[in-house]
């Protein structure tokens, strides 16, 4: 797998776009997921994820092979999401609701396998509440929490992605977790 990615990156560096399509295929779900958790809106997440890949392509020459390629991609996507969060007007909650409605269609499609509609709805509400709680986190906590739980990344990887000392990453995860707990305790 690693070999495959390395060889694809080499081809991309030579300007081969088909090789880049393979890379997008491999990481699109994770990157999209990351953007969605950061931004809380499917449309915006799709947009940000696409921009992240385009930036990766344009800047492929700055990629340092000593770093995990996925970490490099996560870094681009995280920074981009944070930029967008900052530019966003405080209509986060309106957006979150829209994303929830989106989720309804998605979820009702998935729910076919054995879960009753009541369960699905309840779980959907729960999903929405969790996502809202994530969106309420300040950006520095949000980034570490999302990275930690999206792909079960290690503290070391998160520290590489965000270019922060491990100690700082830990502190932020702990604080972020406590903040989430406060938001979700009543459930």
């Amino acid at each position: 797998m690693d070999m495959f990615i390395r060889q694809r990156i080499k081809a991309v560096k030579k300007g081969d776009q088909n090789a880049f399509a393979d890379i997008v295929e491999m990481y699109k779900d994770k990157i999209y997921q990351l953007c969605y958790r950061m931004l809380g809106n499917r449309h915006e997440a799709e947009d940000a994820a696409q921009e992240a890949f385009i930036r990766a392509y344009v800047n492929i020459h700055t990629y340092d092979p000593n770093m995990k390629f996925s970490s490099w991609l996560y870094r681009i996507a995280t920074n981009l999401s944070i930029d967008r969060m900052r530019k966003k007007k405080p209509d986060v909650y309106l957006d979150a609701e829209v994303s929830g409605t989106d989720g309804l269609t998605m979820y009702s499609q998935l729910a076919g396998e054995g879960t009753s509609p009541e369960d699905a709805l309840e779980s959907l509400e729960l999903q929405q509440m969790v996502q809202e709680a994530i969106l309420k986190l300040p950006e520095k906590y949000r980034a570490v929490i999302v990275l930690k739980y999206i792909d079960e990344l290690s503290l070391q990887e998160i520290s590489d992605i965000l270019n922060l000392p491990i100690g700082t990453v830990k502190t932020r995860i702990h604080r972020g977790r406590e903040a989430l707990r406060k938001h979700l305790e009543h459930l």
Binding site: Y36, Q127, R177, L184
Partner: peptide, 15 residues
């Protein structure tokens, strides 16, 4: 419980 909630948040896929 918080961790479980966050971990089990459903995963969407891009278009």
């Amino acid at each position: 419980k918080t961790v479980a909630f966050v971990e089990n948040v459903s995963h969407f896929t891009p278009s």
